Computed example of a mutant assay.
Amino acid sequence: MASRALKFGSHLKELRIHLCQTSNASKGVRDFVENYYVGLKNSNPKFPILIRECSGVQPRLYARYEFGKESCVSLTNLKAEDVIKQIEQLAQK
């Protein structure tokens, strides 16, 4: 997965990732940020990928599309590879 470049289409406007800095439920999301974020950002340099850390928050992924529509998926207890899969699914929606 890390070697494959993921390009976002013009229908997707923004990704927001919410996570906790210390909880076990957010461990996979923290691993995603460490291992995959740079490659994802390099593939989409002008695309806004926002990482929001807050103590005690449940990990979630928000995708904003054209016309202000949003989708949200839970990332609780997922591995970093599963986080990438969730991003791919929302990017194709």
Score class of each variant (00 low, 15 high):
1 M>F: 13
1 M>E: 11
2 A>Q: 15
5 A>I: 04
5 A>M: 03
6 L>F: 00
7 K>M: 10
14 E>A: 01
14 E>V: 04
15 L>H: 03
16 R>D: 01
17 I>P: 00
18 H>M: 04
18 H>I: 02
27 K>N: 07
27 K>S: 07
29 V>G: 07
32 F>Q: 09
33 V>N: 06
34 E>V: 09
36 Y>P: 05
37 Y>S: 11
38 V>L: 10
38 V>Q: 13
39 G>V: 06
42 N>F: 08
42 N>P: 02
42 N>Q: 15
44 N>Y: 09
45 P>G: 09
46 K>P: 00
52 R>P: 00
53 E>I: 02
55 S>R: 10
57 V>K: 09
58 Q>W: 05
58 Q>C: 12
61 L>Y: 03
61 L>W: 04
61 L>M: 05
62 Y>H: 05
62 Y>Q: 08
62 Y>E: 09
63 A>W: 03
65 Y>I: 07
65 Y>G: 09
68 G>E: 12
68 G>H: 13
68 G>L: 10
72 C>K: 15
74 S>F: 08
76 T>V: 11
78 L>M: 12
78 L>A: 07
79 K>M: 11
81 E>K: 15
82 D>A: 14
84 I>R: 13
88 E>H: 01
91 A>W: 06
91 A>G: 13
91 A>Q: 08
91 A>S: 15
92 Q>Y: 12
92 Q>C: 07
93 K>C: 10
